[in-house]
Amino acid sequence: MEKRTDKNSYTIIFAVMMVCVVGGILAFLASSLKDRITQNEKIEKQQNILYALGVNNNDEGSAVFVDAAIAEKEFQEKVTEQLVLTFKDGNIVKTQTREEYMAETKQEPYLIDVKKQQTLQKETGERKLPLFVGKSPEGETIYVAPIRGKGLWDAIWGYVAVNEDMIVKGAYFDHKGETPGLGANIKQRYFMDDFYGERLLTEAGVFKGITVAKGNADPTNKIKDDYEVDAIAGSTITGDGVTAMIKKDLGLYVPYFKNLKN
């Protein structure tokens, strides 16, 4: 005897109902939690930028952000200026202050979606990226730029702080889905800290970037002018991704710093 649940009509009705019920639940959940999630993401961005500026609760060996509760306040205090630069064909064609940018778009500069800007660049040749100005713990003026690239499995991104001479004064990296224990370790202190003090420009002022290098004979990273940091074993492609995003995205800002010096 054919069971009731074997009928085609039953199967179709069941499938339709299931889709509606599940879709409804997920849509309801997503829209009711959306505000909280965007708020969390905003705070995370602020914490990331603050981290690169050297404002964090790092304890020995592990990277700890400033408390989510005070991130907003710290961000207002420590980030003295948020500039928005418009890049076209390797040049900076426009520099806007936070106020000018907000008058134009009603959006905080730090919320600029770097990924969207990268696509925009492909389509129109133009993109807008933020640059955050603040003071290092030593009192030097430093600039934090966002970077974004590809790891092994998915996106990787970060914030790098440099001073006027483009010497790295802080770095924060994060990833969407790198392998735990391998590529995912780019967000560990021992990797990020290696970038501190590394140079991006040669003596002649040519942009060279920093290479995540295997076997650079400097595992403790004492040599700061070799344009290399020690790679993580077993995560070559993630490391190459870091190298590439530093070269590509930080390279964009070179004209800004050249201007600054003149």
Binding site: K3, T5, D6, Y10, T11, F14, A15, M18, V22
Partner: peptide, 14 residues
């Protein structure tokens, strides 16, 4: 008892 056997894998996945 209500899952249609023809699409049970899909239902499980959902």
């Amino acid at each position: 008892n209500i899952i249609p056997s023809k699409i049970r894998i899909i239902v499980q996945l959902v």
